[in-house]
Each structure stands twice: as C-alpha cells, then as structure tokens.
C-alpha cells in the first residue's frame, strides 16, 4: 500500500553550547513546527549535542548556487585592504604585541 503524501521537510540547526553559533545538523519530516522541534531533538540531540534548536521549513531557505559562485563572491577578491595584513606597522610597535 503506497501513500501519496509525506510530512513536510524541515532543516534542523542546533547550538552546540553556550555562546556557540548554530550549526546545520540535517533535516526531519514533521506535520508542524512543534513536532519538527520534537523530532529534531530525538534525532539530532540524544546526547546533549545541542542546548537550543531551530527548525526551518526547507522550502523557505534560499541558497546561493554553485554555478554563480565565481561572480557572486568576486567582489571580495580584490579588496585586500579589508585585511589587517594589508597595512604596515613600525617594527617596534609590532614586537610589543
């Protein structure tokens, strides 16, 4: 007996510890946000891997595409002056660090 529908897909993010940024864990299927959270906990945090979880409907995520990766990120390529290494500092000052 086959079925023709399945529960919507949610992407799961968890915070591994206090002060840490959220990380993507994987996905779960669930009928609503509340069950998505519970399923995410049972699937991705059985051993206290996270202290907080986000669930987001997968179809609500907009991602950059690999085909555009060159033109999309190249505005950053020629701006070496955004990095501290671009600037010179007198030797004596450098040493004191």
């Amino acid at each position: 007996m086959k079925t023709n529908q399945e529960w919507p897909l949610w992407e799961v993010f968890y915070q591994p510890g206090n002060g840490k940024p959220f990380e993507h864990a994987g996905s779960v299927h669930a009928p609503d946000a509340e069950m998505a959270l519970q399923n995410a906990r049972d699937t991705y945090a059985r051993r206290n891997e996270g202290i907080a979880i986000w669930v987001v409907p997968s179809d609500q995520i907009t991602a950059s595409t690999p085909e555009d990766v060159g033109p999309f990120f190249d505005p950053a390529n020629d701006k070496a002056y955004r990095h501290p290494q671009f600037y010179s500092v007198p030797r004596a000052v450098k040493k004191r660090k």
Binding site: T3, Q5, E6, W7, P31, D32, M35
Partner: peptide, 9 residues
C-alpha cells in the same frame, strides 16, 4: 497516524 497528524496541523 501520519494522516491524522497532518490533518491536525
């Protein structure tokens, strides 16, 4: 059960 949960949501 899967259908009922979906319908409840």
């Amino acid at each position: 059960v899967r259908e009922a949960a979906m319908e409840y949501a």
